[in-house]
């Protein structure tokens, strides 16, 4: 009957509470043709009948605050209940500190619910106090290190209140725990991009960091993507940084055939060609050969994609050959 089990043994329906006798419950009006009807429990109907009634009466009181708690417990995704709760908190001038604790407890029960995180954010905005947000999101991320809601809230708090100081350490710990945690890599980029800045020194440091992690787990897309992202801030691009290119060639020489390595070398070739710096090592032939290897052996699932990339290089090669013939003819 009830949603929350044993704790409800003592549950008294609102309709049976003497202190609520002055309120006439308002049943749901689902019209004459309802479909997708949810067979709510009696408790659910009772609580929401009274919620509709107080909303209609515009009652803002302590007892309604309690009613919204019951309504949230039955459906934490009801954004109207949360919004009305906020209006009551404001109207009554309620101390918001206990409310932070309350919403934290709801977040712990439903950490992937948009409404609870929104409520939290509004409270923090009202209080202008983000002092608990890093810990709160840290707890949520311990449960699920990729919880999108928790990351979104954390980034918002950090950005709004400038809480960058210990964030790098936090990210490093997460990556120590799981070097494939893409959310953590994203957060690392977020910190450098917003706080540390892409100075030459920082770019080089981040490149080294990514390379270290790739050495550790070579087929880790997150680390490769990060490396590529950092190189967006290196004037020399991905083909002109000798540390990076020799790192890749070293891996290749040591028989690493991760699709991420091979596609990275293909991108080096592509950039070198576009810059007019193509060589026999980083030119169309090498790229075509790598596409072929990916298609037939190392990344068969994306075979058609690698053929598509290969076609682009074949076109470049034809153009280069035409040009060469043209140049030779001109010389004669």
């Amino acid at each position: 009957m009830s949603e929350s089990g044993e704790s409800d043994i003592e549950w008294i329906f609102y309709k049976d509470r003497p202190e609520w006798r002055d309120v006439i419950p308002v049943p749901e009006n689902d019209g004459p043709n309802p479909v997708v009807v949810i067979a709510h429990s009696e408790k659910f109907e009772d609580v929401y009948d009274y919620f509709r009634a107080v909303l209609q009466n515009n009652e803002k009181s302590e007892r309604v605050l309690q009613l919204t708690k019951d309504a949230v417990e039955l459906n934490a995704a009801n954004y109207t209940v949360w919004q009305y709760r906020r209006e009551i908190l404001k109207a009554l001038g309620t101390d918001l500190r206990p409310e932070l604790d309350y919403v934290e407890s709801v977040i712990k029960q439903t950490p992937k619910n948009y409404q609870v995180w929104h409520h939290r954010r509004v409270l923090v905005e009202w209080l202008r106090d983000p002092s608990q947000e890093l810990e709160l999101t840290c707890d949520a991320l311990l449960q699920d290190p990729k919880n999108y809601h928790a990351w979104q809230h954390r980034q918002w708090a950090i950005k709004t209140f400038g809480l960058y100081d210990k964030e790098m350490q936090f990210v490093e710990n997460l990556l120590k725990e799981d070097v494939r945690n893409n959310s953590a890599w994203n957060q690392r980029y977020f910190i450098v991009n917003n706080h540390l800045g892409w100075s030459d020194l920082n770019v080089q440091r981040e490149i080294c960091f990514a390379m270290e992690k790739i050495k550790f787990v070579k087929n880790n897309e997150s680390a490769w993507n990060y490396l590529r992202g950092v190189l967006l801030h290196d004037k020399r691009g991905i083909s002109g940084n000798a540390v990076v290119t020799s790192f890749c060639e070293e891996l290749y020489k040591n028989k690493c055939r991760s699709p991420h390595l091979l596609s990275f070398i293909i991108d080096i070739c592509d950039e070198a060609i576009k810059k007019g710096e193509s060589s026999s090592f980083h030119g169309p032939d090498r790229a075509i050969e790598l596409c072929q290897a990916l298609c037939t052996k190392y990344d068969k699932i994306r075979c058609k994609y690698w053929n598509y990339i290969s076609e682009k290089f074949k076109k470049v090669k034809r153009e280069q050959e035409e040009q060469k013939k043209q140049d030779e003819a001109d010389e004669k």
Binding site: E3, V35, V36, V37, I38, A39, H40, S41, F44, L74, N75, A76, A77, N78, Y79, T80
Partner: peptide, 24 residues
């Protein structure tokens, strides 16, 4: 079945019943 009636365990979808109708 979903167009018809749903069990109380789906109460958390109470405000988004239209989306369930859409999927169905």
């Amino acid at each position: 079945r979903f167009l018809n009636i749903l069990p109380s365990s789906l109460s958390s979808h109470d405000t988004t019943r239209v989306t369930i109708a859409y999927f169905s």
